[in-house]
Design a protein around this nucleic acid. Sequence first.
DNA 1: CTGTTAGCGCGTTCAT
DNA 2: ATGAACGCGCTAACAG
Lengths: 341, 341
Amino acid sequence: MSKTGKVRLSDVAKAAGVSSGTVSNTINRPDSVSDATRRKVLAAIRRLDFVPNEGAATLRSGTSKLLGLVIPDVTSSFYAEIAKGVARQAEEHGYAMLLFNTDDDPNREIRQLETLARHRSIGALIVPRMADEHRLARLRELGMHLVLIDRATSEHDGCSVSIDDVRGGLLAGQHLVSLGRRRLAFVDGPAGVPQAGRRLEGFRQALEDAGLTSADFAEIHAETASYAGGQQAARQVLSLAALPDGIFCINDQMAIGVLNGLAHAGVTVPARVAVVGYGDSAVAESAPVPLTTVHQPMIELGRAAVDLLLGEVAVTRGEHHHLSTVFNPTLVVRESAPYPA
Amino acid sequence: MSKTGKVRLSDVAKAAGVSSGTVSNTINRPDSVSDATRRKVLAAIRRLDFVPNEGAATLRSGTSKLLGLVIPDVTSSFYAEIAKGVARQAEEHGYAMLLFNTDDDPNREIRQLETLARHRSIGALIVPRMADEHRLARLRELGMHLVLIDRATSEHDGCSVSIDDVRGGLLAGQHLVSLGRRRLAFVDGPAGVPQAGRRLEGFRQALEDAGLTSADFAEIHAETASYAGGQQAARQVLSLAALPDGIFCINDQMAIGVLNGLAHAGVTVPARVAVVGYGDSAVAESAPVPLTTVHQPMIELGRAAVDLLLGEVAVTRGEHHHLSTVFNPTLVVRESAPYPA
DNA sequence: CTGTTAGCGCGTTCAT
DNA sequence: ATGAACGCGCTAACAG
């Protein structure tokens, strides 16, 4: 009925018997308006079905109520959870989230970041798999604020959020050791992923702390860090001179593949081999043997990323100190590597 | 370096020696500009690092290059895949996707839709779990175009995309019947979900077509349509007078729960009981017994939803005929209900 | 094919 | 605490 989209702020002002400046204040700085005025204005807004035009606000203020999340692929549960946290926190602060999947295509990533700039977004939360420092710097010049998610190195000049992978590996290692496991294996996809390297580092640390030597330790790399890769890794494990009694896998999918491979060979889990996964994805709980795994607080991480971004934006004067929020993973113990009875 | 954000379209015009209208044309309607002019303008754009201000364009044109996807929860792989398809297709048409999770909160859903309206989004793709027809109608009055996703009823007045659930159930039923299975069970969570009802309808149809009677059929409802619910359902299945030789589960999570429950009881799959899931989620492939399941083309569905939305927007004159795109699910045969040897 | 120009609707001074 | 007025940068309509 009400031809909204034709109702302007000035119409509201007229209807409420105030000036348009007052209506703007009522919307954006309610505290700077008297109680009675605010009531009148809000009533008029509702009565006329006024829908503010963000485009006009963006043009006028130079910045929009938009932020971007740029990730490789939202169908990965890891990123989907980040997206959920980001969307939630953005919403609570009056922002909306633009979501972009890069599909690991550097050109798309660039275009997406430029789209964000065109929309005068306050900034982006980005998993920089592709963009190099140079490009990120250019975007900063455009006035965009960037928060890096789960970045490999910490040599960047910006806020970032991440999870302590070394600690995650340490938790896994300590758990297996505490279970009395002494011949350990680490199962991964192709080497070279920084996160995996750090988890391995923590894992090794735990073994060292327990007095184990490299003779007690096998490092296995499958062709992919997937379920199929896990099955493949299991075959390699079974061909080792001595069967390990504990296996740490770089993610839950691989762990389930390992579980499957071991089962086919008649090797019981956890009796003969304990298995620990990583990520606590939805599948961990419903694995053939429910998976002990390292949980990562991704939703919280997403929320923290938004907070960092908004914090950076809020700093108008003086130097902004870039912050890095690092979350601790936790161990979720299930049957594949249970506490001793 | 280049103080971008300070470079305006008119600056580009000056630098290229053309008028601002021409710059606008080369950006928005390249075909309406001569080759030579276009080249000059694009060069100037690059040289000055011009970043168009979408806010201004939105204000001027009355509509933004934004569309919204409003779903219950992006961490569900079902919706994540839709999101991926939508983002991709939107991007290819020069649009960006705002993502909103309702978390099944009607108030949030309303606010999100209003946010979209404030941004003068062309429209929204929505899984209307909460919004009623009245609200949807109000949004349409605001000039927003709506495409409904996976909607229960088809009594609405708008474009929609969905998957033929009856056919999905039919596929599952026909497959089990073709395997020679004659005592069938249907496993679901609480009754009342329309999608589930339609899948059951198709399933029953297949049984009828094969000459089976209701005596050959058991309908089992667990407390939740989850992995745990599947385990629970398995117990009910095992307590039936006669063990079924084929089970159709409403989703893959339940199917895996059923698999687990049967395994615990020493019932072999598929030898004694064949199991068919629904959804072809990532877990189906890595289930203890790889799951035969009904695949739903969610990414394609997302893309189709965007096409419908853009099509609706493109119709300026004359009546727009609302379209419904219905996708056919397909059966993915794996070990839990394999083809006869 | 290109140039000219008038606002789009809001936020933000600066008075009062 | 409130009002008046300007202009943010762009598009569309029209003239040439």
